[in-house]
């Protein structure tokens, strides 16, 4: 699997079983974020393919995934509840075999993440960490089996980081999949890892012609 744009990666191939997590590591600028964005369907593949077995055939792979990037996609003018309710209604849920999501109400997940008391407040009043937790809450209100997490623990304190890891492990137990790019080690249970190395010049040359 590769992505031909300017300089990213080539000859990459992996498979992930349901209930497993994949941690993508590697030096800065090697394309961890690009890999996640590719899986999320935001960047198109120049060659190769993505497949999801047991998925809904009329939907693309990307529509089975939640993408959790560096930006929180929180609108300060809307209240916390309104922010979450919009993503719940707007994101189409994806159901696949082997994946049995827990049903969360909007208020439940906010309580679980420790920001239940803010639900009526405009999101402008939230601190950076609280905004981040609100963004995490989005993953739970609309069930999708694959989570693509780009540095999920940035801006979270130790407490909420541990909480998030618990929630991630729970997601894995229910048959979900997680692909995450991170620098800090995460204690996820069935864990595979993928290390991206910087490409050498010879590898890059043919790609430049494609892109």
């Amino acid at each position: 699997m590769d992505r031909g744009d300017r300089r990213v990666f080539a000859g990459l191939s992996f498979s992930l079983e349901s209930g497993n997590a994949l941690v993508v590591t590697g030096p800065n600028g090697v394309g961890k974020s690009s890999l996640l964005r590719t899986l999320a369907g935001l960047v198109s593949l120049s060659e190769g393919s993505l497949n999801l077995e047991g998925g809904q055939s009329e939907r693309s792979v990307a529509e089975h995934t939640h993408y959790f990037g560096h930006q929180s996609a929180v609108k300060p003018a809307l209240s916390v509840k309104e922010n979450l309710a919009f993503w719940r209604d707007f994101t189409a849920p994806a159901h696949v075999s082997n994946f049995d999501p827990k049903e969360y109400g909007a208020q439940d997940i906010l309580e679980d993440l420790g920001i239940g008391h803010t639900s009526e407040l405009p999101a402008a009043y939230l601190s950076a960490g609280q905004t981040r937790r609100l963004a995490v809450a989005r993953l739970f209100v609309s069930p999708r089996p694959i989570w693509l997490l780009d540095e999920p623990t940035s801006a979270l304190d130790a407490n909420s980081e541990a909480q998030l890891i618990d929630l991630m492990n729970d997601h894995l137990r229910r048959g979900g999949m997680i692909v995450t790019a991170t620098h800090t080690p995460l204690s996820l249970s069935p864990l595979q890892s993928l290390r991206l190395e910087a490409l050498s010049i010879e590898d890059l040359a043919p790609l430049e012609e494609i892109g």
């Binding site: 369907g41 935001l42 529509e63 995934t65 990037g69 994101t91 189409a92």
Partner: peptide
């Protein structure tokens, strides 16, 4: 990004 991959 999320709107693009929301499946709508």
């Amino acid at each position: 990004d999320l709107i693009l991959m929301a499946g709508r």
